[in-house]
Design a protein around this nucleic acid. Sequence first.
RNA 1: CGGGGUGUAGCGCAGCUUGGUAGCGCGCUUCGUUCGGGUCGAAGAGGUCAUGGGUUCGAAUCCCUUCACCCCGACCA
Length: 526
Amino acid sequence: WRIMAEEMDAIGGQEMWMPNLHPAAIWQVTGRWMIWNEVLMKLKDHNGRDYALSATHEEVVTDLMLREVESYRDLPRVVYHISRKFRDEPRPRGGLLRLREFVMKDAYSLDTSEAALDEFYPSMVQAYHNIFRRCEVAALAINADVGAMGGKTSQEFIVPHPQGEDTFIRCTNCDYAANVEAAEFVREGVKPDSPAALTKVATPNCQTIAEVAAYLGVPTSQTIKAVFYWFTPNGKAEKEGRLVFGLVRGDLEVNEVKLTNALGGGTLRPAADAEISAVGAMPGYASAVGLPVARGLNQPGVWVIADLSIEAGGDFVVGANEEGYHFTGANYPRDFSVSLLADVAQADTGHPCPRCGGRIEARRGIEAGHCFKLGTRYSAMTNATYLDENGRPQLIYMGSYGIGLDRLMAIIVELHHDENGIVWPAAVAPYQLHLMHVGKGDEPRQVADRLYEDLRAAGLEVLYDDRDTSPGVKFKDADLIGIPWRVAVGARGLAEGGVEVKRRDRPERKVVPVDQVKELVNGNWL
RNA sequence: CGGGGUGUAGCGCAGCUUGGUAGCGCGCUUCGUUCGGGUCGAAGAGGUCAUGGGUUCGAAUCCCUUCACCCCGACCA
């Protein structure tokens, strides 16, 4: 896609071809052969050696820098390509929005230091803004979770759309915006001046937060919700994992991605009742009160990860780990301890903005592109170094940047259409001009044939509908396809000394002389 | 992984409840007609009813198997 290439070249990008068939070894050294186990399309050759189809190309670039980058004189570098990616998505959907095989423009930057990467990174983000602007796609750059890419920070380019798969947060007052998986927010609530005593109360048949709160007549924000997961760290087998006891204030929800990040990365699945009981907690009436809580993630005991919200408020209602009973008046840290206090709750509409205190709102959007500041995530694992001015080896700093082309095309169509079909923005239209002849007689056909040759000779991209069918059919099809300019050659126009021209995005038509058609595309209309 | 749905002509669907050997719209072919916003008419072509098995005199239809595709959900105690 020309726009992509121009913007990448403008910031020093070098286009190159990268393989789509990857030996397992390059994925094993970065640890992602296991981490991306569910995502990689794996296959074997006739000798039984493992390969994966390209799901992304950090590994290829990492391998490349191991071989090619020797000294600081070889840096910085930016390489990019447009190629196919294969991912075993659990559920492809939305037409072109989520595919198992898709086309991506991905770029990778290599720098000598964190400072150098920090300096380069904004130019890539700017290039992405340029790309989306030129495609007439209103994309927002928001802070996002780095996910399975690893690294430090990332900017996600998201296009607000009701059918989007992602939820993001934006402040209604300032310009704060972030993916829900990265969004921070202020926990409202105050601790009581004189905390009540811990008291056990009967709460028959109250297994959910809503039931308990209603039964005791307190707001859900005065309860603490307990959730259980089985956590498997990256690179470990599931049986080597352990139970995670999550705590969040009753009016909030746990965000699993935040929780996974707080634990250092891995996978979560809901815990089975037997696994919960094994640590002494009672499903339905569980809390950290009275449990042998680990004092830290490397200490013995039960892992209890609590959201910051348990400090915003007090005299909470919590489970008593006994069927049919809860405690009231529970306060942290007086009545229970936790292994880790972290931001693991999901931000939602109405919460206060972390930056200005205004209200934030949750909205849906489609992820159109993503920039990752990877840092030394890959170079450290593979010991990819260069020699600095003093002859000492230093780790290479990496960044990775991607835009899905199929998805971008779907977004463009989603944003630029009317009841009759697509309305392509000129910069991304498959053709510049849609030519057709209409009506009876040989003359329109002959004029159109000639015009087609002229326009092509003038270097224009022309789609010529030379079918011998009725005008209505041709007009409908032209609207559906949505080429920016339509040129109809017919008896009516010829009688007025020209051909009829119409822009797809405007209702007016106009007859212009045949020899002026080629100037339309760049010229003024009306 | 759990739940639900759908597989019948190139495409979209009806028929299935109440078994009797398949139909509609669009598209396609031919002829005529029309000719600047999906013209009209006539005549045609085209289907192992996803698959395998069972019940029956007889199965698209009832029962079971397998496969494929689509949708929803995935545990907040």
